[in-house]
Amino acid sequence: MPLAPNFTSVLHKEFEINFTQCLPSGCLKYTELCNLLQLTAAMHADLGGISFSDMQEFNQAWVLSRMRVEIKSLPQWKDTVTVKTWINTLENSRSVRALEIHLNGEKIIGCETFWAVFNTEKRRPEPLALDHEHFQLFPDLKATEESFSKIVINPEKEEVFGKTVILSDLDIVNHVNHVKYLEWCMDVVDENIILKQKIKSFEMNFMKELSLRDQVVIHENIGEDSIVFSITKEDKNCFALKLNLV
């Protein structure tokens, strides 16, 4: 797809929060928050000619490797938020993208994401085949106070439950979407932590992709001010989530 006439290197997109996206408290679900960020990143890539459809001509797609989200407050039902995104770095097979969510002119959420170009046939990273020189990069404009990091998985973890990957867990790249990993873990978090907005930030690391009918185990390690989840397949770590609590 050619470069869209309304393409800009910094994108602003408005969303109205609807009731299907909300918790019983009326606040936006953490999974739906990630969906908004994912949709905005995809829209920016589409406008800039490096969308999934464009990349599929070369059997490529963007896949998420790491993500950090810092939360001042969550938007609520009927709020209209503005999601802002830009690219910090884009080189070879890797890109760091920043995103922010603003409500009534105030930044309430910041996010830093690390993406890799993935060959959907060979199932491995490779350099981006498409031109991207038209994207202005903003390496010093950060959306979060801290950058994403490697999550330490404590071996003293507790097995929470096992799961078989089903069709509804998969996305267009034919593997488990990052929002699904988050959903699986959030489903076992104490509801008071979620409903009372006790999560000040969270990080996700994606290590190995999961596919249809994979058998996985979700583990949990609860600390004083954080909870770390890990997901394993055949005793190998595939995913880690760290919730930092207030």
Rank of each mutant, 00 (worst) to 15 (best):
W62K: 12
R68S: 06
T31N: 02
N59H: 08
Q60F: 09
M55I: 05
D46I: 10
E32A: 15
S65W: 11
L39E: 08
N35K: 09
I50G: 00
L37P: 02
L33M: 07
E57I: 15
M55S: 00
G49A: 12
S53T: 15
D54W: 07
Q60Y: 06
R66L: 05
N35V: 11
A45Y: 05
A61G: 06
M67Y: 12
M67H: 14
N35S: 13
E70Q: 09
T31K: 05
A61V: 11
S65E: 13
F58I: 08
L37V: 11
Q60S: 03
A42M: 11
G48Y: 02
F58E: 11
L47H: 10
E70Y: 08
E70S: 12
R68V: 15
F52K: 05
F52W: 02
A45G: 12
S53Y: 15
L47M: 08
M55Y: 01
S73C: 13
S51N: 05
G48T: 11
K72E: 04
N35C: 08
S53Q: 11
I50L: 00
L39C: 07
C34H: 10
R66V: 07
N59I: 10
E32F: 09
H44Q: 09
L33F: 05
T31G: 02
R68F: 05
L33D: 02
E70H: 03
S53L: 13
M43Q: 10
L64Q: 08
E70F: 04
M43S: 11
M67S: 13
S53V: 15
L36T: 05
N35A: 01
S53H: 07
G48E: 02
L39R: 07
M55N: 01
A41L: 07
T40H: 00
E57N: 14
D54Q: 07
F52T: 03
T31D: 04
Q38R: 11
L37C: 05
S73G: 06
R66T: 14
I71W: 00
Q38I: 09
V69Q: 12
M67T: 15
L37D: 01
G49S: 03
Q60N: 04
M67F: 12
L64P: 01
A45K: 13
C34R: 10
L36I: 13
L64H: 01
A41P: 01
A42L: 02
L37F: 08
M67A: 13
M67W: 15
M67N: 08
T40D: 00
Q38F: 09
A42T: 07
L33S: 00
K72R: 13
L33H: 05
V69K: 10
E32Q: 14
W62F: 04
A42V: 05
M55W: 03
L47N: 04
F52P: 02
S51R: 09
Q38A: 10
T40L: 00
L47T: 12
A45H: 13
M55R: 09
D46V: 07
D54A: 15
A61P: 00
F52H: 07
S73D: 12
L64V: 14
L37R: 09
L37N: 03
A42Q: 06
F52A: 06
S65V: 15
M43W: 04
T31V: 03
A61M: 01
Q38Y: 12
A45C: 14
Q38V: 14
S53R: 15
S73Y: 11
